[in-house]
Nucleic acid binder design. Structure first.
Lengths: 189, 189
DNA sequence: TAAATAAACTAACAATTGTTAGTTATAGGT
DNA sequence: ACCTATAACTAACAATTGTTAGTTTATTTA
């Protein structure tokens, strides 16, 4: 892996602060202090505070979209697709715990990228719902409102970032399969 | 029901704004504008912005604590206790959609009340975990890590506020039972 | 109607915000 | 040793922040 640029380092540290206090409560002086420099120096590397948020959120949202497209095009059955979605969330959340906090809590502070983000999210949820509906149609999944099922599963997965860092000794494979058991067995007929 | 005081009205409107943009991003001028008055006038009714947040969060947190204590002292079996917890979350979340957003996202901006809030939350989670462990011991519930189960159920319930307002025609009884089916049947042996 | 209370107002404050301009120090390649 | 690019610095800005002081208006009570 290539070395992290200064810009990437700033964005990484910013995401950490954003997770703790939220985008709006973190000042450029906070961020600079955490980097050991002065606030003005940040602007040698980034264009604006807003840009940092855009970068954090959009790159993650695109990673989720990409993952979903891959899962969708796989010829697995519905339950296996759900398991893959769970793995996707566990993987991306554990790789970027801090970014996930911004994605969940600070997306409304996007500006130019807001519309684009919202489209990605809606498309993701549509794809998710489609998988559930297929599963209901084929009899793999119990026939309860797909919206409620999606909500239940997706909010659990979206909140993984809160919880992953608390389990230091966490085995990600094991977490995925435990989650699959809990989330899916309740769905599986 | 007695008429809402001006103070209560301010807090209700504040919670709505806090849900949309988060505590830190909402200014007292925003809040005043939403109330149709000037920012300074707010201070005839409230002591500080901080106080508003304290009020919103602590009253809700105490309602959850109270609910949990009631459930705990009931002599129901474990599955029934879980169903009651689900009903508690559906009830409080639907009664106070906006407050739930602050509870979830802005608790870290509490000041004097922060420690107290954290104690309430930890106690609540401990009680929740105890119920699951009882259920495992008595064979009502599958024997997987209670922490993961609790996380999965609790994050779903804690996120209800995001989702409830989207379903206008929502029947709360029906939602509770659908959620029970989804969340519990996966746990029930 | 007079007095008292509640709730709004204007004006201003000190602190903090994101950001810019202009300058200096550091380090690597020639 | 010199040059160049990188990355830090100081100083300052205009705007916005929560909040206070003092005053006026509106409503209720006696």
């Amino acid at each position: 892996m290539k070395k992290e640029t200064r810009r990437e380092e700033i964005i990484r540290v910013a995401a950490k602060l954003f997770k703790e206090k939220g985008f709006s409560a973190v000042t450029m002086r906070d961020l600079a202090a955490e980097m050991g420099i002065k606030a003005a120096s940040l602007y040698n590397h980034i264009n604006s505070k807003q840009d940092i948020l855009n970068d954090i959120i959009i790159s993650l949202a695109e990673a989720f979209t990409e993952g979903m497209k891959l899962i969708q095009s796989s010829n697995k059955n519905c339950i296996d697709k759900l398991k893959q979605i769970i793995e996707l969330h566990v993987k991306l959340s554990s790789q970027n715990v801090y970014g996930m906090a911004s994605l969940n809590n600070d997306w409304m502070h996007l500006d130019e990228k807001l519309k684009y983000y919202q489209k990605l999210r809606i498309d993701y949820e549509d794809d998710f719902r489609s998988i559930l509906k297929e599963g209901i149609a084929s009899g793999e999944i119990i026939n309860v409102k797909p919206d409620v099922m999606m909500f239940s599963i997706l909010t659990t997965l979206r909140s993984l970032y809160i919880w992953i860092p608390k389990k230091e000794e966490l085995n990600l494979k094991e977490l995925s399969s435990t989650l699959s058991q809990i989330l899916i067995t309740g769905i599986n007929k």
